[in-house]
Design a protein around this nucleic acid. Structure first.
Lengths: 339, 339
DNA sequence: CTGAAAGCGCTTACAG
DNA sequence: CTGAAAGCGCTTACAG
């Protein structure tokens, strides 16, 4: 089967390629009659433009890249969902790459996307990313760039985030308001900004409410998973018998902790209150259902693409564009793991 | 910043574009000296080929498309993970589209991928897909195509699946072997092949073991989610008081059912045994932990891309290629929700 | 309103 | 071993 090209249509109709091209794109300087004729013929032959040629001429691919630490992850897959849906609406396709939390992979993938000449890049940083030269390179090449969730403040680009510190503050305050006096924190690794911010929000809430901060009540969950939630809970039971509340960096960790308490006959929330983070859909399904902070993944994805789209549009029109940071709302959700 | 092109390098070195191109691609008919010179200059200028031009010339994009019913879904996100990892290894990028279980969207997305001239397409069908003309169109255009998990037997292309019927048979047999005499089935919608196959496996296992099939014990969960698992369990409690085992089409449904039994003080597995399907990581975290069938998502993704790659390679070499169906192994996992 | 021509940046068959 | 030339299929500034 021979590919249908503009040339083909032009020959069939006995007119020039130029006119065919213009007619199909509704240029105002082509007669209605010609347009109709061309369109009819194009339809008849099932003509579709060769995007490779269009890309080469227009220097655009209508394709954007997305780098994400982990695909198999409820929050991130919600973000992906928001992004691809919004992108499709605007006629863009999304190439998805997974950094596996590895700086080296992330850097390689940025280079891959650059070499593929995507029209824009969206990224949530790997935990191990400290050096940001690969991101500066993107800026340097004038490729529109939006960072979301796990960002670096050192890169001057648009960002979509939540206020982790504030959200953690309110989560901790919720524990305090419900009567907890001795509150532990299961935190994430030391490096990632959101792990730091949630820790700081926790600490600040204690201090603002007259509860002394005790560093022995802070447990680190490097990988932020279920198993670590269990381990931290078990360690906590060994170390302290007076803790009456825990703020966990993530629902998954909280679910692990609750499992341990359930097994040991420790009553949640009567003996100990548990607060999660992210509002993973499973958190409403466990027993007791988990109080948590709603982190809007789908909306974050949507907003991220929208901001990228704005920047791409500005670039095309050669209009100036200045980076903006959008902070999405979170909300404390009170369920049955807190009083 | 001006783009670096072959022309640029050629001018700097005072040689022809042809020679530069050949040197960079290690054609055997260029002298070592010239190659070294060209490569050095290319490196110095940070030359990267313009993929748009390469695509146009080679008629290949080194990009493949993936259409999936739902991104936010543990099994499918595992598949995505397997696919993009394997693709990246082979130098391919993956464009991901979500059909939302909608036939109309799926069809549109197929057309989108065709118009983007991806080198190959991988798809898991939407539940609502009956008409397969869009897939035949793909075959017709000679675009390599692999279907996985939710497939149509009517399309002659490579497929990666599990033996749903057999897996369901063994899951049901596991319930029978552990002493269950009256076994219900929470099935999926009527249309999707895997829903049908799991149902048939369930039925066959009953029959093979002298248990009469009773259609009133089969409940339909259209959307196959947690809520429906709860609803079906509640309905079951109203309808029948003698059921001692349930085989659920999916872990998520099983988790919903277990939640209801836990709340009502009905003991799992003493009063009733529950069997899930898919081995979602949460299923080992709930109480009691869920017996299930391991459905290898990551491996399915890997295999799917590998098969697509083979087909793309054959096409490039103009070698004949005949479609194959690969059936992946599943395994019954015995945990605490069955005896 | 129509079309000839240049050009996007590469690859490759062919000539020397 | 090197290079001139054609061509992939489109877009668009320019001339008429």
């Amino acid at each position: 089967m021979k590919e249908v090209t503009l040339k083909q249509i032009a020959e069939n109709l006995g007119i020039s390629i130029t006119t065919v091209s213009k007619a199909l794109k509704d240029y105002p300087d082509v007669s209605k009659k010609t347009k109709a004729l061309v369109k009819k013929e194009a339809k008849k032959l099932h003509y579709t433009p060769n995007v490779f040629a269009v890309n080469l001429r227009t220097k655009q691919s209508k394709t954007v890249g997305l780098i994400i630490p982990e695909v198999v992850h409820h929050f991130f897959s919600s973000v992906i969902n928001g992004i691809i849906e919004q992108a499709e609406k605007k006629g863009y396709l999304v190439i998805i790459l997974q950094s596996n939390e590895s700086y080296k992979l992330e850097k390689k993938q940025i280079e891959l996307l650059i070499s593929k000449r995507v029209d824009g890049i969206m990224i949530s940083l790997a935990n191990s990313t400290v050096d940001i030269s690969h991101l500066l390179e993107v800026k340097n090449l004038q490729i529109p760039l939006v960072m979301f969730d796990k960002i670096s403040k050192l890169v001057d680009c648009s960002k979509v985030i939540i206020d982790d510190r504030q959200a953690a503050y309110l989560a901790t305050k919720h524990l305090i308001d419900s009567g907890c006096k001795r509150i532990a924190h299961f935190r994430g690794a030391l490096l990632p900004q959101n792990s730091i911010d949630r820790f700081l929000g926790y600490k600040k809430a204690l201090e603002d409410h007259g509860i002394e901060y005790d560093s022995t009540l802070v447990y680190i969950c490097e990988k932020v998973n279920y198993e670590e939630g269990r381990e931290a809970a078990e360690q906590l039971l060994k170390d302290h018998n007076d803790v009456d509340g825990i703020f966990c960096i993530t629902d998954l960790v909280a679910v692990g902790a609750i499992a341990v308490f359930n097994e040991r006959g420790i009553k949640v929330p009567d003996d100990i209150s548990i607060m999660g983070f992210s509002n993973w859909f499973v958190s409403s399904a466990i027993t007791p259902s988990l109080s948590t902070v709603d982190q809007p993944g789908y909306e974050m994805g949507k907003t991220t693409f929208k901001m990228l789209f704005k920047e791409m549009k500005a670039k095309k029109k050669e209009e100036p564009f200045s980076a903006m940071t959008k902070v999405l709302d979170t909300a404390v959700i009170h369920r049955n793991s807190t009083r």
